[in-house]
């Protein structure tokens, strides 16, 4: 099903999983991948069918609100053009959080105290 982008900005279709809410990307097998590296890269001609499939998957209660995003493709890997979508594709905030943040801050304190 994979096909390289032809003209115009390449696209991938993204959504959130209904049960977990996590960000997902339509993959070449019609599944929904958490990693954008596994996303199916679409050209303009394929987009309508992919979005129609997303709607079917929405109706089937797999995902929510599928939509297309512009990506730049380098070595077959899609990188979203918009910052918002780059952050979604990273599957988390651009800053650390929770225990990882606490440990970072504790490390900083220890160094400052030395």
């Amino acid at each position: 099903m994979f096909k390289a982008a032809t003209s115009g900005p390449a696209k991938v279709v993204t959504a959130n999983r209904l049960d977990s809410g996590l960000v997902v990307f339509l993959d070449p097998n019609g599944g929904w991948a958490l990693d954008i590296a596994e996303a199916r890269i679409l050209d303009d001609e394929e987009l309508d069918d992919a979005l129609a499939y997303g709607k079917e998957q929405d109706d089937a209660r797999i995902i929510l609100d599928a939509y297309a995003i512009d990506v730049e493709v380098t070595d077959g890997l899609a990188v979203p053009v918009r910052l918002r979508e780059r952050i979604r594709a990273e599957r988390g905030p651009t800053i650390d959080y929770g225990e990882a943040e606490r440990q970072r801050l504790a490390g900083g304190q220890a160094e400052a105290g030395e």
């Binding site: 959130n16 977990s20 996590l22 952050i87 979604r88």
Partner: peptide, 12 residues
């Protein structure tokens, strides 16, 4: 929403 559940950028 009436029960405080939003869908945000990464998750609910």
């Amino acid at each position: 929403l009436m029960n405080g559940v939003y869908l945000q950028l990464h998750a609910y």
